[in-house]
Design a protein around this nucleic acid. Structure first.
Lengths: 133, 133
DNA sequence: CGGGATCCCGCCAGATACTG
DNA sequence: CAGTATCTGGCGGGATCCCG
C-alpha cells in the first residue's frame, strides 16, 4: 500500500523517523515477544538464575529463554551477572530502566485484565455472527 | 522447559489461567502485531475509510490492513460500518473500549519515547562489546 | 472501493544433541 | 549449570489476480 503519505507521517519522517528502526516499534515488538512480559514480571520479584527462570515459565524452551533474555539485556532492561563458581551460575535481574518499565507494563496488563470480560464477549458476538451467516 | 511449576503459576492455573488463551497475552500480541498501534492512533483522530487508512500507513499491504482491522473489530476495539453507496464505502472508528485503550497505549509509547536514548545507548554498548570480543 | 482467494517464500521456534 | 549448533516444519505475510 505504498503511495503518498499524509502530512503527519511525512513530518515524522522529516524528523528522522524510520518506521523500520523506530525504538517505539521495536519496544512494542519485544514486549509482545510472547515471553518478555512474563520474564520481566518474574524478575520484578527478585534476581533469578537461568534454570530458575525456566522453571517459573513452563513451556518455554531453553532457546527462547536465552533469546528473550539476550534481547532484554541488549536493550538495557536486564542485567546478566556470571559467577565463576563450579558449576557456574548466572544471575539475571532488572536494571534501573527495567524497573522503570514495570509501571507502563502494569498499566497495559491492568487494562487487559479489566477489559478481559468485554473482549471475550465481543469475540463471542463476532464469531457468533460469522457462524450464523 | 517443562517441569514443576512454581506456586504462583500453579495458583493461577488453578484459577483457570490458560497460558495459551490468556486475554492479556492475546491483547499484548495484537498490540505488537506491528500495525495495530498505528491503526489505533490513526483512528483516534477520527473515523477513516479503508483506503484512507492505507494511505496513512505506508508500507502496509491491503492484506495486513484487512487482517489487523478484523482482529481489532473482533476484540471490540474498532467498529466497522458499511454504507450502501456506489461505489460502496466502509468507515472504521474506535469503539468506547477502543478509546479506553488509548490511555494505556500512550503510557507505553511515552515510556518508549522517553527511554529511547537510553535504549539506543544500551544497544550500542552491547553490540560494541560483542564486536570487540 | 473494499476487500477475498491463491501461491509461495522466508524466518521463527520446537526438538534434539553437544559443550565448557 | 547455562548455554550453543543444527535441522526442520509451520505459518506469517508479501505479491498477484479476481470480485461485487
Amino acid at each position: 500500500m505504498t503511495g503518498p503519505t499524509n502530512d503527519r507521517i511525512a513530518a515524522m519522517k522529516a524528523d528522522g523517523f524510520d518506521l523500520e528502526d523506530c525504538p517505539v516499534r521495536t519496544i512494542l515488538d519485544h514486549l509482545a515477544a510472547k515471553w518478555t512480559t512474563l520474564i520481566v514480571f518474574e524478575l520484578a520479584e527478585g534476581s533469578r538464575r537461568f534454570n530458575a527462570l525456566g522453571r517459573s515459565l513452563p513451556d518455554i524452551s531453553k532457546r527462547m529463554l536465552t533469546q528473550s533474555l539476550r534481547e532484554l539485556e541488549r536493550d538495557g532492561l536486564v542485567r546478566r551477572e556470571v559467577f565463576d563458581t563450579k558449576p557456574p551460575s548466572v544471575e539475571y535481574s532488572l536494571t534501573e530502566m527495567g524497573r522503570s518499565f514495570l509501571a507502563p507494563l502494569e498499566t497495559m496488563t491492568d487494562w487487559a485484565v479489566q477489559s478481559q470480560a468485554d473482549i471475550l464477549r465481543a469475540r463471542a458476538a463476532f464469531d457468533g455472527a460469522a457462524t450464523a451467516s
